[in-house]
């Protein structure tokens, strides 16, 4: 995928260097792991923070992510995509797990029905944070419903059923908007 100079938010080396570093980490190279942390910790922590919100919890998630990267580096397959995508995918999964765990804990504490989902904020409230560069431009090419569906799932950790309920839309609609929204984002970023 082409990298467009000047549009990357993180002032880091290109993706190829991260791929190389991860290859060295797979062989137990501590220095490479140290350098990898420097390269990607902002992206990992930033996403974790955005999803779990609580700074201390975001630190825990960040630590979990790097430990998983360390332990599983040898299982990463470069043919399956960028190393950074692999790391960000781990980050997102762990952040969402953390949110769902605490959400389920909260529900238990409140002794409410386990299938009841409590949303404490209107949909609009989450569509406010600043995006940057190519991602912001490309998100701008999505329809409102695509952006809302993708962002509520990705940044709030909602399931698509929860997104559908929050936006009061049928399940198949939201499922489809998530897919065609991401496809449009992918195509736009490829062309960026």
């Amino acid at each position: 995928m082409p990298e467009t100079p000047g549009l990357r938010l993180v002032p880091s080396a290109g993706g190829a260097d991260i791929d190389v570093l991860l290859g060295r980490v797979a062989r137990g190279d501590n220095h490479a792991f140290d350098a990898l942390y420097d390269q990607v910790s902002s992206a990992v922590y930033g996403l974790a923070r955005r999803v779990v919100r609580d700074p201390a919890r975001a630190e825990d998630v960040t630590q979990e992510v790097f430990l998983e990267v360390w332990r599983k580096a040898a299982r990463y397959d470069i043919n399956l995509g960028r190393a950074k995508t692999w790391i960000m995918t781990i980050t997102h999964r762990r952040a969402v797990d953390a949110v769902r765990r605490s959400e389920s804990q909260k529900r238990q504490d409140l002794r409410t029905a386990p299938d009841e989902v409590v949303h404490d904020q209107p949909a609009d409230a989450v569509i406010k944070a600043e995006e940057h560069g190519a991602v912001r431009e490309c998100l701008g090419t999505l329809t409102d419903l695509q952006v809302e569906s993708v962002r509520l799932a990705y940044f709030n950790g909602y399931t698509y059923a929860e997104v559908a309920s929050l936006l009061d839309k049928p399940l198949p609609t939201i499922k489809t908007r998530m897919r065609d929204g991401l496809i449009r984002l992918r195509d736009c970023l490829e062309g960026a």
Partner: peptide
């Protein structure tokens, strides 16, 4: 699609 989502995540970078 995971790659596109990852880039959305990267745009939220914040120094730990």
């Amino acid at each position: 699609l995971q790659d596109a989502a990852a880039k959305m995540g990267e745009s939220e970078a914040m120094q730990p």
